[in-house]
Design a protein around this nucleic acid. Sequence first.
DNA 1: GCCCGCCGTTACAAATTGATACAATCGGAT
DNA 2: ATCCGATTGTATCAATTTGTAACGGCGGGC
Lengths: 224, 224
Amino acid sequence: MYVTTPQPDTAILDTVPAKPDIAHHRTMVIKPGKHLFHEGDPADHVYEVASGVLRLTRIMEDGRRQVIAFGYPGDTVGFPSDGTYHTDCDALVPSTLVVHRRAHLESANGDPVLHQRLLNAALREISAMQDHFMMLGRKSSIEKLASFLMVLTARVGQELGDYDEVTLPMTRADIADFLGLTTETVSRTFTQLRKSQIIATDHANTVIVLKPLALAAIAEGVQD
Amino acid sequence: MYVTTPQPDTAILDTVPAKPDIAHHRTMVIKPGKHLFHEGDPADHVYEVASGVLRLTRIMEDGRRQVIAFGYPGDTVGFPSDGTYHTDCDALVPSTLVVHRRAHLESANGDPVLHQRLLNAALREISAMQDHFMMLGRKSSIEKLASFLMVLTARVGQELGDYDEVTLPMTRADIADFLGLTTETVSRTFTQLRKSQIIATDHANTVIVLKPLALAAIAEGVQD
DNA sequence: GCCCGCCGTTACAAATTGATACAATCGGAT
DNA sequence: ATCCGATTGTATCAATTTGTAACGGCGGGC
């Protein structure tokens, strides 16, 4: 999952988890904190998230970290390049994955339908990453956080009376490293949105969106 | 072309333009300033850059722009998602392209070898974009510019005695929008590198790298 | 050849974000 | 239930980047 400007026509589709015919594929379970793969590992498999949340990261030598994406149900992770993975990937919560052999991505021999589905996932990945570039390069901190909450609400939000509620399985540091900010700035920006009555927070990891339209306006930079 | 941390083993390969058997494929020429496609256009073709330089951009409603990538020889542009392009693409200099029908990317029927090549290009694209995230989200302005010049020199630099020379077909504004900076900051940072005797510039679009090791060190954040 | 406009550069002021420090809160373990 | 450590929030101060406003130079169009 990237922070993108949802395309009205496709956003819904993207939020629908692929419902693979699990009986025909291998599945696995991964516990919070456990790694699915590391950067540089030989990439033998591609994974579809069936439930849970994954975290894809890249680390610089001096410790600076970038969260590349969060893997939510319906997302596919582990696209190889030159036969290896180029990010670390671990689980934030208990997650179940559908495991595909890399060969199914790289060749239509065997299962053309699966091949097509994985290929489309890769193409959607490229498109989503392009959107994310705009956010990392050109949006302010409040626009970034508002965009993040909008996308998350659209994908995994729960109706709560008149409002939308969303649970954040990641820490403030994860959000900061995802949006290209510091944890302090993320915290400060949460406070700013809270004081504006646009959101409310419960246990720091539960956000209630009180004014979705205002949040969307901020995300798109319509106002300050 | 993204600003990535070159992988020693793959960087060379990436810089080698695909040498398609042009006789068997349709080619086209595009003039500077002309658009190859716009965001939202139906995506019927995928393009391999044979010569020249392309620019892929995304624009926000309020005019903010992000340069997603520069398309150098060997790069493939125009990966579709949901049947449409998700960026604008125009040429910075006269360019020649090898045109592939989208069907060749999306199905192995017809030309499995070409399909495989386009698929690998898509996977490399994902990997390169992941590297670029780190740069957009976590690097300082001087690290960004140093990284940019390093990558460009490695791909299209010319030996010039003891030094490397590289021509920049894009404006400062393009570089700024690519790196997530302002033109002023790009200009100031060029000056900074020039005063440090790490680079020299000729006509603002010709850069001579005087101290490649120092430039690489800055790019990786080894020093300030 | 001349003019106009874009591009690049620079100086200075302003704003945003980051760094540091510390208090408060939460959650898991004992 | 209580303790401990990690996470979060807040405040202050510093640093980086941006905004603004010039100015010079180069090139294209007339």
